[in-house]
Design a protein around this nucleic acid. Structure first.
Lengths: 166, 166
DNA sequence: TTATTTATGTTATATCGTAACGCGTCAAGC
DNA sequence: GCTTGACGCGTTACGATATAACATAAATAA
């Protein structure tokens, strides 16, 4: 039985967060064991912090939280933990926000599109095969070899759009 | 007769740059008249600077050039000119590079995908209807209302990929 | 003309990100 | 056991990117 049976109608709000956060942490641990990398206390805590919300957090915001928990107080502490998480596919960098968000997918290597709501500031992650296909076709037509994809949509989630219209 | 009859096979290199740069400047002037906005000397010069290459340029790099031409020497000078160009659809911001590139399309409002070559550092702009469709479908499925799109592909252009393989 | 808006320039500061180095830990090989 | 080397974490110091706030000047509107 799959963890996420159907894509929810509203990925921003129609969502069992406690469950998804726990699943990600479990995946992180399993993956670390499997690949022989170390999910150290700072790294694990950084992931937990990102998992507390579906907002994207700036590195300095994460750093504050880490410092409050007794870890180092200087920027590299946060950037290194976040870089690790991104490399391991456990978090994503959201370029438009200069910020980071936990990866909620079960897949090790994927590059989702991000839906960024400017109302509630939440971020949703969406994998879309047709999108990959369209991008691949685009690149192929230009003889371009894709290495990294950034797809970010800024706008309003269903709930905030409804509130704005009302 | 259209300005760009066919999408070139290699948009990075297969390209008459002198012609495209001139066309963009003409479009900028026409558009400014039409919309009653002012393409002032700094703004125009900033656009020319971006048009000199197909690289994306950082704001501070543009600023240096502007300062050398006798304009102001402080960051807001560059950021304001660049913001204007972006608002007018005459330039784009490339988030992955924290940089700006002249818009080479004739269209006032479009949001192209960017192909960013990490070899030659050139940036190509590609409009792809199927991509828009895929993004629209993605958003519709989530009840999300898109306001701004960011699509950036990092990799190697045909020429650089060839060189890398050789 | 006078009033109002828009644009340009400044100073100062906020925000984001990284280079470089020292110390501690841990596992591999002797 | 010891040593050695890789890695992780912490630091200091700095670089790069971006904006707030305010003064002056130029263009436009009344």
């Amino acid at each position: 039985m799959p963890q996420f049976p159907d894509p929810p109608a509203d990925p921003f709000h129609d969502h069992d967060h406690a469950h998804c956060a726990k699943a990600v942490l479990q995946r992180a641990e399993a993956q670390a064991r499997r690949e022989g990398v170390r999910l150290t206390p700072v790294r694990r805590r950084a992931l937990e912090i990102l998992l507390e919300s579906h907002r994207a957090m700036g590195a300095y915001e994460v750093l504050e939280r880490l410092a409050a928990d007794g870890f180092g107080k200087q920027p590299p502490v946060a950037y290194r933990a976040l870089d690790f998480l991104v490399e391991q596919g456990l978090a994503h960098r959201v370029r438009r926000l200069n910020a980071y968000a936990a990866c909620l997918s079960q897949q090790r290597d994927h590059s989702p599109a991000f839906l960024i709501c400017r109302g509630c500031e939440q971020v949703a992650e969406a994998d879309a095969p047709e999108l990959r296909v369209a991008l691949a076709a685009l690149a192929a037509g230009a003889g371009f070899r894709i290495e990294r994809r950034t797809v970010e949509l800024l706008g309003l989630c269903a709930r905030c759009a409804g509130a704005a219209d009302a």
